[in-house]
Design a protein around this nucleic acid. Sequence first.
RNA 1: UGGGAUGUCGCCAAGUGGCUAAGGCACCAGGUUUUGAUCCUGGCAUUCGCAGGUUCGAGUCCUGCCAUCCCAGCCA
Length: 556
Amino acid sequence: MTDKYVTENFITQIIDADLASGKHTDIVTRFPPEPNGYLHIGHAKSICLNFGVAADYNGTCHLRFDDTNPEKESAEYAQAIKEDVRWLGFDWAEHEYNASDYFQQLYDFAIELINKGLAYVDDQSIEEIRENRGDFNTPGKNSPYRERSVAENLDLFQRMNAGEFDDGSKVLRAKIDMTSGNINMRDPVIYRIRRMHHIHTGDTWCIYPMYDFTHGISDAIEGITHSLCTLEFEDHRPLYDWYLDNISMPNHPQQIEFSRLNLSFTITSKRKLNELVENKLVDGWDDPRMSTLSGMRRRGYPPAAIREFIKRVGVSKSESVISMTVLEDTLRSHLNKVSPRVMGVLKPLKVVIENYPEDKEEILTGANHPQDDSFGEHDIPFGREIYVEHSDYKENANRKFFRLTEGREVRLRHAYYITCHKAIKNEQGDVVELRCTYDPESRGGTADGRKVKGTIHWVSAKHAKKIEVRLYDRLFNHPNPAALDNFLEAINPDSLTILKEAVVEPYLMDADQEVVYQFERNAYFKRDKTHETDLPVFNQVVTMRDSWAKLEENDD
RNA sequence: UGGGAUGUCGCCAAGUGGCUAAGGCACCAGGUUUUGAUCCUGGCAUUCGCAGGUUCGAGUCCUGCCAUCCCAGCCA
């Protein structure tokens, strides 16, 4: 059960019923992006659902580019989409298609509709068509060209295709019902004239089919059994069905709609994401704060964690906004199991251990994972001078603060007990160094049974490797930025913090740079390969849960 | 105002007329712990948008109302 991609939901119930009734024996789904932008977390839901359902039912999932509008599409986007889908962990094998592969068949089906008297060429202008479509309260008016003969429509449509008419001067429309309550059924446009170079068909066509006409027929051609899409297409379904019912097509896929994924404090609108990039509010489409798959990849989100997140969220028809904490918890619980531990100090404070010999050096060992021995262990150099986290010292600490303060003993992780005796301040009064002593007998821990509550992380000053660390917070301060008049006003000015003084133990720099490491007591980090400066850059994936911070907050 | 949909705990989400309304996140309280992490234990909806009705029995069926979302591209 747990090895499935998708938990039971209303869609899998439909599939189960279709399998039980014998309507289908093999399940075929499809992920149909338009190659006009980058994929984001919302697409991840569709990808995981379509590919996941196919995998769970031992079926097939096609990747189909919905490239019916050459105006907005590019091969670069298509390439990026393929990379993202693969990265998420899915494989369409040989089933990569384009809606444009079917342009000839689509054209022939349009001819069939004309021959059946179900489609006509309309000469009305775009404004007239809009005008005559009516609105929610007013039924539409039939086009004056609606009753043209089949022969005339055939002639005109063929000439549209031959390039005899200007862009926008004519369209092919389905003859359905201009008074329908469903505006999609008020003689929808099937083909428009648009002289534009297409990423796959080049200049062979000057007429392009519309989404509604193309999608269902493409599904049917490919033998898709269940065509899963988002809620806003619900009232397109009658049209999807109408086209398939009125052409010579034996199979009829079932369109099923589910609700989009919305994540609190984030944005998933192509237009708005683009605005962030254009206005240089982020460092490109793959900025680690972006909700794009490329951004999450660069941030260090493991694909398996994203899949798990989508699985946890479930599939339904109710509009929902998933709390960011669900994503964070999924990330943490995944990372906790797979991340090797390492010590890194983000904001270093020097500690001199006065009773540790000047020239002495020791190699200690630390487990790579506290609960899983199979991760092994690694060497950690120790010496007289070390760095500890600045926040692990507090001048006036209460009893609940079990870290460094004058006279208090703490444990250095994987090392000795030290006791702080004195804090050295600079002229401004900032603490710049701590003088401590260590207990040589305390290595390994238990010593004489003293109770030492606090254990802090550290890095040997002599062996420390400097790195740049980038901490990320939510990009927006508002739980639903998309709902704002101007979402840019909700931008969190502190979404990125760059730390250039951070140090890590040498082991990290020798280890695999592809994996996400836990800097103990801090957060999970992954090496940024894309935009490095003079120092190695590490991106914060997600922080650890911090009940101390919560405690402090509640005390205030 | 027409058409389509949705309303179960702060956020998701099971539930398909019959034992005490799953589970996750969040939150709260405790325990273990060389990460204030992890892990473990316990708490957290007398009630399912509201009001009626059917039934021995309703979150599940019926009626009415209310709220929210989507639709008037030659976009997808």
